[in-house]
Amino acid sequence: MKKQGTGNSKAVSVYRTRMIGSGLLFFLIAFGMVGPFLVSGDPGRQNLSAILSTPGKEYLLGTDHLGRDMLLRLTAAIRVSVAIALITTATASLIGVSLGILAATRGGLAERCTSLLADTFLALPGLLLVLLLVAIAPGSFWPLYLGIAMILWVEQFRMTRALVQPLATSPAVQATRLLGFGPWYVFRRHFWPELQANVLTLSAFGAATAILSVAALGFISVGIRPPTPELGQMMIELLPYYQEAPLIFLQPILILFLLVLSLNLIAGGKIR
């Protein structure tokens, strides 16, 4: 009894979801990039005569409690979040996929060692691990980068290992080797086509995790230090003024939500 039908329309809707997500992300990044050209100035410059001003002519998106331009601060914060997400995810994917293929194709000691490493990083909830690292040197970039990359590579590794392991021993790969092809061909024609959609999905989730972690750390005041603007840090700074200036207060929340939403959509609306 074959099941027909739903498969195709599902693929179409996933594709559409991904496209909407990509569009949204592109728009946000473009906003982050273009911001400094719209208004010139320093996101840290205070103007105490115009604190918490509502969006208007002088300040397109208003000012915060210290009279700093929200547009400049938000766009700078987007650049910080996206940059950290990009490098941590790229690092994690590269390491995760390589080690995953190593574990799946070599087996034996290589697999045991890499799996132990992965289990070690899974023993603690990710944010706790990042917190521990950040606590060593608060406010600096390296522990943040290392910590986030360390929690992200594990998922890429486990996915790669799980997908490649059955492939590595499959008749298809055996036949390819018998026909004289080398390991690079096996990777290019057999492993990578199966991996790429999952690497993309996990990278989108990973980028979301990275952005959320950075914001969470900023929110509890142990992340990126002022004066560099960061979304979580902006939220906690603006919290006391939510009654006075709700429009200002909601801006970083909205940006963070849209960033994470776009990445969740790129991941096809799936559950990780």
Binding site: G232, M235, Y242, F249, I253, L256, V260, L261, L265
Partner: peptide
């Protein structure tokens, strides 16, 4: 589900505080 997964817990908290308490 997608929307709530995209709002971090602290932002959900902030919005809830805004809505309920005040």
């Amino acid at each position: 589900s997608v929307v709530f997964r995209s709002i971090p817990h602290f932002a959900i908290g902030l919005v809830l505080i805004m809505i309920f308490s005040i």
